[in-house]
């Protein structure tokens, strides 16, 4: 059986690449071509979930002020805050200068 010289095989490979217009890369260096060749995955990723619209009471109230929507939970919260303020349990006032803020820290 006649053996083929490696140099001849290399030449064959090069000529084959020329003919079929493929990349000739005898040393197998990484060219990063696969990152360009791969399809982009973003568009199909966006299709996974069905489209949805985020509904919120606050947004409805803002978009349609003529509907007179009342957020009951928010009203209850505001009423409670008022009650607490009346009993002197409201949030402390903001410190005007350094000394005041230091005093509040010590008290804790």
């Amino acid at each position: 059986m006649a053996s083929i010289a490696p140099s001849a095989l290399a030449t064959l490979n090069r000529v084959r690449c020329q003919i079929f217009q493929t990349a000739y890369n005898p040393t197998s260096t990484r060219t990063g071509a696969k990152y360009l060749r791969k399809r982009l995955r973003g568009p199909s990723m966006m299709k996974y979930y069905p489209p949805y619209q985020q509904l919120s009471l606050a947004k409805l109230m803002k978009d349609y002020p003529e509907w007179d929507i009342v957020d009951e939970e928010e009203q209850i919260r505001l009423r409670d805050v008022e009650d607490r303020k009346k009993r002197g349990k409201g949030a402390p006032t903001k410190a005007k200068n350094k000394e005041e803020s230091r005093r509040t820290q010590r008290r804790r």
């Binding site: 260096t29 990484r30 060219t31 990063g32 990152y35 360009l36 791969k38």
Partner: peptide
């Protein structure tokens, strides 16, 4: 992808 291509290109 463009940055990946440059970063992985051994040439």
């Amino acid at each position: 992808r463009a940055y990946l291509y440059v970063a992985r290109d051994q040439r």
